[in-house]
Simulated assay, not measured.
Amino acid sequence: MPLDTSESHPSTGRLTAHEARQRLEHARNSRLAQLQALDETGQSTDDQLMTAQAEAIRRVLGEIEAAFTRVEDGSYGACLSCAKPVPVERLEILPYTRYCVACQRRAAS
């Protein structure tokens, strides 16, 4: 399991639960700020692009909340498809990702 549940310094290639939570909180705060910025633009709610952007941000927020659940249940950092560890570099870029790169590619095609 690539998540180190201790709060101490991680071994190579692993995030601590604390680090995972920090990355997820940062991602959530960034998306909430994006939603607020969209709301403050004063654009009409009929604007399809703005609506699509807001929906995409809300989907990511849902993914972030699901990732928090995985941190709590100990499954964070394992691919939901193949159960192999998701590389820490991928988790640093997309802390809410559910899949390793190979499984994500298969799902997208």
Rank of each mutant, 00 (worst) to 15 (best):
E40G: 12
L94G: 07
V60I: 10
A102P: 03
A27V: 03
E55W: 11
G74H: 02
D47T: 11
P2K: 06
Q43T: 12
P2N: 04
E19M: 15
T69H: 13
A107R: 15
K84V: 15
R70W: 00
E40C: 09
T51S: 15
Y99C: 00
E92Y: 10
R23A: 03
Y96Q: 15
R98S: 08
R98V: 01
A66L: 05
L35F: 02
Q43F: 14
Y76K: 00
F68L: 01
S11G: 12
T5S: 14
Y76L: 01
A102C: 05
P87H: 00
Q43C: 11
Q53S: 12
P10R: 00
Q53V: 13
R21E: 01
P85D: 06
Q36I: 09
I64R: 02
Y99P: 02
N29P: 10
D47Q: 13
T16A: 04
E55P: 04
R14G: 03
A27I: 00
L91K: 02
C100S: 01
C82Y: 01
Q22D: 04
E65H: 14
T45E: 14
N29M: 14
A37C: 08
T97S: 05
C103N: 00
A107D: 05
Q22H: 06
M50T: 15
D46P: 11
D73L: 01
Q22A: 08
C82L: 00
M50H: 11
P95Y: 00
T41P: 09
R105N: 12
A108R: 12
L38F: 09
D47L: 10
A102S: 11
E40W: 11
A67I: 06
D47I: 07
Q22T: 07
V86N: 02
A54I: 04
S11E: 08
S30G: 13
I93K: 10
L35H: 00
G42L: 06
A67D: 01
L38V: 04
V60D: 09
P85T: 04
R23W: 03
T97N: 00
R59Q: 15
S30M: 12
A78R: 05
M50P: 08
S30F: 12
H26P: 04
I93H: 12
T51Q: 13
E55N: 10
D46T: 12
R28Q: 10
E25L: 11
E19F: 10
E40D: 15
A78W: 01
L35N: 02
V101T: 06
E55S: 14
A37V: 10
S44W: 07
L15I: 04
L24E: 00
E72T: 04
S75C: 02
S75N: 02
A33N: 09
R58T: 07
A66N: 03
I93Y: 10
T97F: 02
L91V: 03
S44F: 08
T16I: 04
A78Q: 05
R14L: 06
K84G: 11
E7P: 08
V60K: 06
